[in-house]
């Protein structure tokens, strides 16, 4: 391990937009590649990223996203979000960024722990079989805080 004082990164992914999911995944994977422990807690809309039927259908947000540089009205038109997502996925593939499903496999194989939020899973009436096989378990937020069990642990809300 290098000189970093960061020993463990705990991420909370609460959003389902593709850019947020990738932010969490790239940082969690990057941590593992530096010899830093990492874990992701999926809550609320973040749960879309670990639902078998939904994870390959995440979208980039075209409404309320100033970085899209398009009028909000236009971003809301049918097909615009799908088109922007398609373009972004194309660019990601060029950079050899894996799709969400493959990325989750990579994270799991790399030793990144993946947790579902109990409250949100109950709220959305999700069953265990709706969620990816790589999931390490379902936790309360209190359980997740207890994963911050060493000096140099950082918690990040996305």
């Amino acid at each position: 391990m290098g000189k970093t004082k960061v020993k463990k990164m705990l991420f909370i992914l609460s959003k389902a937009t593709i850019e947020n999911a990738y932010a969490a995944f790239v940082m969690a994977n990057g941590a593992r590649m530096e010899g830093i422990e990492s874990e992701i807690f999926f809550t609320f809309f973040g749960l879309e990223a670990i639902q078998k039927k939904k994870l390959e259908h995440l979208h980039v947000a075209t409404v309320g996203n100033p970085a899209m540089h398009m009028p909000t009205m236009l971003g809301g038109l049918p097909g615009v979000e799908a088109f922007a997502t398609k373009m972004m996925k194309k660019e990601m593939e060029k950079l050899d960024m894996p799709p969400i499903g493959e990325f989750l496999e990579i994270l799991s194989d790399s030793g990144c722990k993946l947790w579902g939020c109990k409250l949100a899973i109950d709220m959305f009436h999700l069953k265990k079989e709706d969620l990816i096989d790589e999931l390490d378990g379902i936790l309360t937020i209190g359980d997740f805080y207890n994963r911050a069990d060493q000096k140099g642990t950082h918690l990040l809300f996305i």
């Binding site: 391990m1 290098g2 994977n29 593992r32 590649m33 530096e34 010899g35 050899d96 894996p98 493959e102 496999e105 990579i106 194989d109 790399s110 030793g111």
Partner: peptide, 29 residues
């Protein structure tokens, strides 16, 4: 060929789990 963790998964030489086990603390590095 640029090395990446995704490349390891596709390599057919070893899988990611084994890679981490062989070279702990950041296997690519």
């Amino acid at each position: 060929v640029a090395l990446s963790i995704r490349g390891i998964k596709k390599s057919g030489v070893l899988n990611i789990k084994e890679f981490y086990a062989l070279f702990p603390g950041g296997p690519l590095k």
